[in-house]
Write a protein that binds this DNA or RNA. Structure first.
Lengths: 256, 256
DNA sequence: GTTCAAATCAACAAAAATCAACAAATGATA
DNA sequence: TATCATTTGTTGATTTTTGTTGATTTGAAC
C-alpha cells in the first residue's frame, strides 16, 4: 500500500509517531545522519501524509496517545530519551527482560521496537501493548486490575507472573535517588514489585534522570531494593560525587 | 502460489519480514554471500511484490512502514470511526462493559475516553492501556500471554477473568457477516472468547463495517455465537435485505 | 515594519549503492 | 571425465544518495 521511499522511512515514522513531535536535529543526531538527509527523506513522507512537517520539527499524524500520559512523557523529555537510548543499546535481539511502569520505561519500550525476538514481562499495559505488536516478540502482561494513572497492575496475579519469570535484565525506575537512602518511591506496592522483579532477573538496570538526584517537592519515603554487584545505573548527567563513589565501591557500573 | 526463484528467497523473505527494514550489506554479511547476489535474488521478489526495494535496503511489505495492527487501523478508517461513534454513544458514564480485540474495538476505546467511571474488561492490551489511564475508570486486563499481531490474550487466565465478570454490555466484532452462517472469524480461540464475553454481559453489541457483508479474500470459517433478542448490530451502511429481515425477526436492532 | 537567529532550500562534489558484463565456480547429466 | 547450464563473485561504468556550502526563507522579538 504505502511503498517506502528510503531505508530511513520506517525508523523515522516510528520515532515521530512515538515522540509526537521531534525536531529535525534530534532525529539527525539520533540516527547519525545530517539534517539535510532528514529533510530530504521526510519530504515524500509528508506529501503522502504519513507525517506533518512544520518549521523546525516533524509532527506525527497519529498522535492518538493519551494526553495526560503524554504530558508526563514531555517532562524532562530529552533526558528520558537519552536514557532510553542508553538502556535500549544494552538489550540485544533475543534477550529477555522485565520492565516496570513509568514514563522512562515507556520510552524504553518505544526504543526497543526495533529489537527482535524479545521476551518481555511487564506490569504496564502500555509497555505490553507497545511491544506485543512487534512480530516475533513474546510478551506477558502481569496483572489484571489496572491502576488508573498509568495503567499498571500491582495485584496478586501481577506478582505471581513476575515471580515465575526468569529473565536476564530487569529495567527499573525510581522517583528519587539519595546517596544514603538509595532509590526511593512513593508507593509500597512499587517497592514490593521492584523486589519481585529484581529477584527474577540476573541483573538490574536502574534508569533515573538527573533530576532525581535533586530534592523533590513531594518527597518519596519508601526504599527500593538496593542495586547489587554487576547491576547498572543509567542516567543522563553524572551523579554527584558522593553517589559515584558509593556505587563504584559496590561494583555498580554507571552508564549514560 | 509464489514459486521461489532461488534457494535464498525463503530466508531473505523471513529475515526481511522479521526486521522490517534491512540493508543489503547487513543481509549479505548475515548470510555469507555477496551484495550482488542479494540484489539479484531480491529483484524478482520485489517484482512479485513479496518485498520492497529501496536504495540501500529491503523493506518488508508486511511489518514495514506500519505494524500490521496500525495498518489495519487505517483500512476502512472512516467506516470504523463512524461505527465507533455509534457504539460509544450507547455507553453512558458509569456503565460496565467488555470489549474484545480488533481495530474497530481500538477505535471504540478511543471514543470512550471522554466517558467517566467506566468499568471495563478486555483481553486487548491496547484497549486496556487506552482506557486505564482515564482517571476514575476501573479497567481489568484479561490474560497474560499476549498474541503478537494485536497484543490480545486468549490464555486460560483471560477466560477466567472474563467468565467472572458481570457487565451490561459486550462489544464484539467479526471478520465476516453471512445471512445464514451468522458472524464468522478465523480463529477458534476468538469464538470461545466471544461466547465467554457474551455470557458475562446482559446484552451484546456487534460492530461490523459494511465490507464485512462482502465475500472476503481469506474466508473465515468459524462461527461466532448468534445474537439474541435485545442485542444490537452496528454498521456504517444498511446491511443487505436478507440480513435485515432475519435480524428484525429476532428482535435485534440495527443501528448506524 | 525591522532585525536577527535558526531553519530550510538549492546546488555540487564526494561517497555509496546499483547495474551489466564477464569469468570462475558449482553441480547435474551423459 | 567431459559437457553444459546455472549460479556466484568481481570488475568497472552508471546511478543514487549524502554532507557541505552558501543563499533564501521563516518565525519571533522588538
Amino acid at each position: 500500500m504505502t511503498t517506502p521511499t528510503s531505508k530511513y522511512s520506517e525508523e523515522i515514522l516510528r520515532r515521530v509517531d512515538m515522540m509526537g513531535t521531534v525536531t529535525v536535529q534530534e532525529l539527525s543526531q539520533l540516527m547519525g545522519v545530517s539534517d539535510q538527509t532528514i529533510r530530504r527523506v521526510t519530504r515524500p513522507l509528508a506529501e503522502r501524509g504519513a507525517l506533518n512537517k512544520v518549521h523546525g520539527a516533524l509532527v506525527s499524524t497519529k498522535s492518538a496517545l493519551d494526553p495526560p500520559f503524554l504530558s508526563r512523557m514531555t517532562l524532562n523529555r530529552e533526558a528520558k530519551i537519552a536514557i532510553a537510548n542508553t538502556v535500549a543499546s544494552m538489550i540485544k535481539d533475543g534477550d529477555s527482560l522485565i520492565i516496570d511502569t513509568g514514563s522512562t520505561s515507556a520510552f524504553i519500550a518505544q526504543m526497543l521496537r526495533d529489537r527482535r525476538e524479545l521476551t518481555v514481562v511487564t506490569n504496564s499495559a502500555f509497555v505490553a501493548s507497545t511491544l506485543a505488536m512487534i512480530p516475533g516478540n513474546n510478551v506477558s502482561m502481569a496483572g489484571t486490575q489496572l491502576r488508573d494513572h498509568d495503567g499498571a497492575s500491582f495485584d496478586r496475579s501481577a506478582f505471581q507472573v513476575v515471580e515465575r519469570a526468569k529473565v536476564e535484565y530487569c529495567v527499573l525506575s525510581a522517583s528519587m535517588a539519595h546517596p544514603e537512602n538509595g532509590f526511593l518511591v512513593h508507593e509500597q506496592c512499587e517497592v514490593d514489585m521492584a523486589f519481585a522483579m529484581m529477584d527474577s532477573a540476573a541483573r538490574s538496570i536502574m534508569a533515573v534522570d538527573a533530576s532525581k538526584f535533586q530534592p523533590q517537592s513531594r518527597k518519596p519515603a519508601l526504599r527500593q531494593p538496593d542495586l547489587k554487584k554487576g547491576d547498572i545505573l543509567v542516567t543522563d548527567l553524572d551523579p554527584p560525587e558522593t553517589f559515584r563513589a558509593a556505587l563504584a565501591h559496590l561494583d555498580i557500573r554507571v552508564a549514560r
